[in-house]
């Protein structure tokens, strides 16, 4: 697609899409949202970018390959199961800590969040792999 409007929109919208996806991902804890939807949104931003330019350009913008995202996601999800082991709880038990950050305030972080982050990254990577492959052909 060689429309300047679309290209401009795609490049300007990309950071906002990513920001929105992170918000939706974090919101997913107690409200509608979550890693899956967040990952889809993040992928959608890059798919739009790839539609406006092309897939090489989008992959360059992504900096890492979609495969790296998948690996990172799977590893994160796997690592999220480990803390429960060391504290002697059954496998997959959610372990929580609350952290106080400057400006943001108290946030709760725990293994379910980490697992969800794994889902986010995996979905993002898988979607981009499939769609980029289809677009390139």
């Amino acid at each position: 697609m060689k429309s300047h409007i679309v290209r401009l929109a795609a490049s300007k919208l990309l950071p906002f899409t990513l920001l929105l996806s992170v918000i939706v991902f974090y919101r997913g804890h107690n409200e509608p949202g979550g890693g899956f939807i967040g990952g889809l949104m993040a992928a959608a931003g890059f798919v739009f970018y790839a539609l406006a330019f092309d897939t090489q350009e989008a992959e360059k913008k992504l900096r890492v390959s979609p495969l790296t995202l998948i690996i990172a996601g799977l590893s994160t999800a796997f690592i999220s199961t480990l803390p429960a082991l060391f504290s002697g709880n059954p496998f997959f038990t959610g372990e929580w800590i609350s952290v106080t950050l400057p400006f943001i305030g108290k946030i709760k972080a725990g293994t379910p969040l980490l697992f969800d982050l794994g889902v986010y990254l995996t979905v993002w990577g898988v979607m981009l792999t499939i769609i980029f492959n289809l677009m390139e052909e």
């Binding site: 495969l67 998948i70 690996i71 799977l74 590893s75 796997f78 199961t81």
Partner: peptide, 13 residues
């Protein structure tokens, strides 16, 4: 279940 998952991660790495 976890062992094949770990193998997949290592294979992809």
């Amino acid at each position: 279940v976890l062992l094949p998952l770990m193998t997949i991660i290592f294979l992809l790495l």
